[in-house]
Design a protein around this nucleic acid. Sequence first.
DNA 1: AGATTGACTGCAT
DNA 2: CATGCAGCCAATC
Length: 106
Amino acid sequence: MDDQDVYEPLYALIRTIPPGKVVTYGQAADGVDGLRLTARMVGSAMRIAPGDVPWHRVVGAGGTLPIGKISPEMLLRQRELLELEGVRFIPGRSNIIDMVKHQWLG
DNA sequence: AGATTGACTGCAT
DNA sequence: CATGCAGCCAATC
């Protein structure tokens, strides 16, 4: 057995998110089975997430990006990656995603 | 081993 | 819309 991170089930869930879709931290935490994760745990897990995890598809509640909580370079990268996948942002709210269209129902 | 922190969320003020 | 507080639990000091 590998000494997998306790977040392995979480990473597995994130990897199942299709392109153009996003989930909120709380949704991801609640969607993981076998762990008692909270939204904060998800965020912390993303920071240490392996390179094969599309962490950019995880956003804050309501489609907000975690501005000010992470390095600005990562924020720009996340927004860029999402745009490349066809995610639409709300005009005038350049950091808010149109969750009505892009929130992954799991 | 105890205290602090943290990619969060929701409600109250 | 800004600010504050409680809840959550692993990681870090």
